[in-house]
Design a protein around this nucleic acid. Structure first.
Lengths: 211, 211
DNA sequence: CGGCATCCGTGACGATACTG
DNA sequence: CAGTATCGTCACGGATGCCG
């Protein structure tokens, strides 16, 4: 908890005591796709200072959101705990609300493809309908994997052969996040390419309107 | 937007640019139930300083989250715009995540009954099943009204006779928010009283397990 | 070189006093 | 009642240094 707590007996205020400080939720965003090293976090959180990143990670570890794990002898990674992972739906809600703000693109803005992983997961979840399975996303030079289940979406490692592979660029991802484009329309226009021969890839790759 | 923007082309970061500053989301919490005066806001946001409250309201007005309206000649009220109201589901997500943190009750914590309106609405929505209608909530000395629709819950004024009236205390509300108690069990134990003779009041007042 | 800790300038915040 | 003014404090951002 922040040293400066709201001291309100209120579930919203309690949450903000834990993840309301600057950068905290963006660190969750970075870790949502899987474990990351300190340097990777620093590289993908442009603008954060080194001490604030270190302090946040310590706070979040103390609050049970993050664990520090040793990958090899010199390599430590940070990853979300299950409790921390439960914040991903919250991020999805924030992303959904904020997608409308993406129209104003500032040339000074930083940009990483995986920042669209969460809103893209929401769009893929809708487009999949009742189909389930794993999806590999290729967005510009970034890539990640996710599993579409009946209840929701989880990000996975890239261990297995995906049921569907989706390739797109950042502009298309932003349009999908904003809801300006439906996935089916983007596929029809060739802005999104779906590969695979499973029920899931068919569901994502057809022009059927899902909602 | 805060003068200190993240400058990330990312829907989450864009949202935090707008509502990530201290107190902003708690102001939304206060306005979720309806229009409020400056003094009321200040009274129900213990710990906020007058200048920060004024500054946030100005920012939120500039960002289209809040409007200032003249009720009578000397009385101004602040209320959420439709865009601001779209943040209520986000608050519900934050409240759901943070309900587990309410077990640690600090005696120095401030407390207002209506701080449980959002998690309580979530619980009522689940308990209602397919029933719809208006509910009047009486929590200690606080009270408010909400409409349970098929898609979600909205807070309303107290204009009409409610389909159901629900009376409970803060401790019960906290238990319901945490998920420690189901509404049906709380009704069975007499911790929640449901009045009315509609389908909705029956759905809320029976001991049927809904999930 | 990755992973921080230290120092310092700036801005956001909190408390109180004051004003139309 | 509804804020504005003032000021001390703290969090943040940037740069640099230390240490394995």
């Amino acid at each position: 908890m922040s040293r400066r707590s709201y001291a309100h007996y209120c579930p919203v205020a309690r949450t903000l005591d834990v993840i309301g400080e600057r950068w905290a939720l963006l660190i969750v965003r970075e870790l949502a796709l899987g474990p990351r090293r300190y340097t990777d976090l620093h590289a993908d959180l442009p603008g954060i200072s080194t001490d604030v990143l270190a302090a946040r990670l310590k706070d979040m570890e103390a609050n049970g959101l993050v664990t520090r794990r040793r990958l090899s002898v010199p390599v430590w990674v940070y990853e979300l705990t299950p409790r921390g992972h439960e914040l991903v739906p919250v991020l999805a809600g924030l992303a959904s609300w904020g997608s409308a703000l993406l129209s104003e693109a500032d040339p000074t803005d930083a940009l990483r493809g995986h920042w669209f992983a969460i809103p893209l997961a929401t769009a893929l979840r809708q487009a999949a309908g009742s189909a389930t399975g794993t999806v590999r996303v290729l967005l510009d030079e970034h890539d990640w994997s996710l599993r579409i289940g009946p209840g929701g979406v989880t990000f996975t490692g890239e261990d297995t052969e995906p049921d569907a592979t989706v390739r797109l660029d950042t502009a298309t991802a932003a349009a999908l996040a904003r809801g300006d484009t439906r996935l089916s329309d983007a596929v029809a226009h060739g802005e999104v390419t779906v590969k695979g021969d499973t029920a899931l890839s068919c569901a994502l790759g057809t022009t059927n309107s899902v909602r």
